[in-house]
């Protein structure tokens, strides 16, 4: 599990053994296969890209090819302990919809996203340019990202939706940042549930 990407490692640390986990935008199944191996979870992935889906199938994972924008109607309410959405929410159209769906299907949601409040991003805006940084590696004209937020913004949206942060962690360059998270963290990880 040491090989796991730093942000996924943090997500994995939040998940208790033997639980049911739904990984939205699961990519090549890195997180799910680590969780299956180390924590004996029952996992399902959702992935839109067939070539990534093939990697999941090779790893022996359950994966459903589907577009997250169309919701999670294939999944029964309250059928998972954790629903994970990593580094995807900033590229989605219907953010309120997917957050609501996550907590319909699961007890606990885990979302990771680039923190727009990171100081390098703020500085570049101050200098009159759209930020390009470790977690936002695109130029404004070729970015797939359409909904940026800061850690503070995300917290406020959860409040509006009747949800609350249970745990949060920010990272920069793969390292945990404990001081001034909304300023010094380029990547935010949030574990949330219903109020």
């Amino acid at each position: 599990m040491n090989k796991l990407r730093a942000d996924l490692r943090c997500v994995a640390d939040w998940i208790k053994p033997g639980m049911r986990v739904l990984d939205l935008g699961c990519g090549d199944g890195e997180l799910l296969s680590a969780l299956a191996r180390e924590k004996q979870i029952t996992g399902y992935g959702v992935e839109i890209d067939v070539s990534k889906m093939v990697h999941c199938v090779e790893k022996g994972l359950n994966v459903v090819q589907s577009d997250l924008e169309s919701g999670l109607s294939a999944f029964e309410s309250e059928s998972f302990d954790y629903v994970v959405l990593s580094l995807t929410i900033q590229a989605m159209h219907n953010i309120e919809g997917i957050l609501a769906e996550m907590l319909r299907v699961g007890k606990t949601g885990i979302v990771t996203f680039p923190n727009f409040g990171f100081w390098e991003n703020r500085w570049q805006i101050l200098c009159g340019r759209m930020p390009v940084s470790e977690t936002i590696p695109y130029e404004w004209y070729n970015t797939p990202n359409i909904h940026f937020c800061t850690l503070g913004d995300f917290d406020r949206l959860l409040g509006k939706l009747g949800m609350k942060i249970e745990e949060q962690q920010v990272l920069h360059a793969g390292e945990k940042v404990e001081l001034f998270p909304n300023l010094l963290g380029s990547l935010a990880l949030v574990k949330f549930g219903r109020n």
Binding site: T42, Y44, V64, Q65, S66, S79
Partner: peptide
Amino acid sequence: LDARKNVSYAE
């Protein structure tokens, strides 16, 4: 999925 079976789906 509702029956909690192992399933993968490709479209």
